[in-house]
Design a protein around this nucleic acid. Sequence first.
RNA 1: GGUGGGGUUCCCGAGUGGUCAAAGGGAUCAGACUGUAAAUCUGACGGCUAAGCCUUCGGAGGUUCAAAUCCUCCCCCCACCA
Length: 427
Amino acid sequence: MSVLEVLNERGFVEAVTHEGELKEYLEKNNATCYIGFDPTGSSLHVGHLVTIMALAHMQRNGHRPIALVGGGTGLIGDPSGKTEMRKVITHEQVDENKRGIKGQLSRFLDFSDGKALLLDNADWLTGLEYIPFLRDIGRHFSVNRMIKAESYKMRIESEEGLSFIEFNYMLLQAYDFMKLAKSHDCMLQMGGSDQWGNIVAGIDLVRRTQGKTAFGITFPLITTSSGIKMGKTHKGAVWLDPERTAPYDYYQFWINTDDADVAKFMALFTFMPMEEIKEVEALEGAQMNAAKAVLAYEATTIAHGAEAAQKAFEAAASVFGAPTIPEGLCGSSSIPRGGSGAVSAESVPSSSIDMSRLEQGIAAVDLFVETGLSKSKGEARRLIGQGGGYLNGERIDTFDQPISNGDFKDGEILLRAGKKRYHKIVA
RNA sequence: GGUGGGGUUCCCGAGUGGUCAAAGGGAUCAGACUGUAAAUCUGACGGCUAAGCCUUCGGAGGUUCAAAUCCUCCCCCCACCA
């Protein structure tokens, strides 16, 4: 089975250029392909996962993926799909972000022995000279055509407009492709559907300058079944950096997937075989929860390692109860089955507190604020007033209920806000 | 540079001297129902030493018993013209 089929089957493909030829190309060659990553943040997030997984599939099928960090283009900002101009970032930030990004990608890609590459387009873009660039590259672009591109249209029609530097983004990205085609024989670029215009521009440029056919694949924008762009939660992005999104929260993010999305996400964000995923589609009711646990476990394993996934699983089990995963379900997953014995909740956020203060008793509201479960006293008061505050599993009745060292159970006080947020206080 | 229109609480958006912590919607949070899902229903949604007080309506001043609302200056955005 070729990569293209794998990607297709798993729902990665939105559009492909020269489908037949690309298929042939991928079957005959150990191809090199690339995807660009914006170094605007120090961490990638779940929104990047589709592209990352696509690269991983490429590598697993014998091709060589290149993750291209836009250190040069990042200084400009891609207007595609954005309604407003992006902040320009500094070189130092880019360097720092690059390090973070590589670390995270290493979980998904094997960078050893040049099996995957991390390149930075700043290496060739920052040295460009204006006049030669215009003469050699600019002449291949038609403004008429560019302004018709979907990626620019929106901005051109917007109130804010499109700045000149952003307008040049397409040329630079096309230049990247051309450069990589020449230096690494990289003939395939992939990207989100908003990148279509940029990718096609690159393919064009490769053809005009080198007379070769390059290819492009775009991925669909993954939305949840409720139509929201996936990976954003009220708290902001779900990061791949464990410092920013703890593995436990990462795990929880996947657990909270909509029923309707579970199978889709399994196909996209795990390496589980499609036969098993098809079975998941048919699940109903509470069984779906078991499938979600598998999804969360697998996704967490990929992003943070088996150990972290195990811990997250156990922590979740200790607060929500261990899920029963039927034997027949998702056989390839190494998720613990049949309720593992000792469950620890060490991934639940915890803090310690000065014992002398506890002796006097601390009002519940204050404790909720101190532990970060509530942002302000008003919020804590509201929470408890509405019945959302719990102490060791018991609902707290009044907001000023004192909590003291008499409330320790097994050496800890377990506070809970609402259904899902916990905090442990240890002596 | 000229002319006109704007900047309101997380977002959109009403409000044009007191009745405004500011309509409505969205988002969010909690509760009920459930399966840590969705949908639905209910409630909350600036802060606090909480029937009271304090801080908010681009910024700084001013008028007034009283200003998001009126005046002055400034900053920013947008449209059209040049």
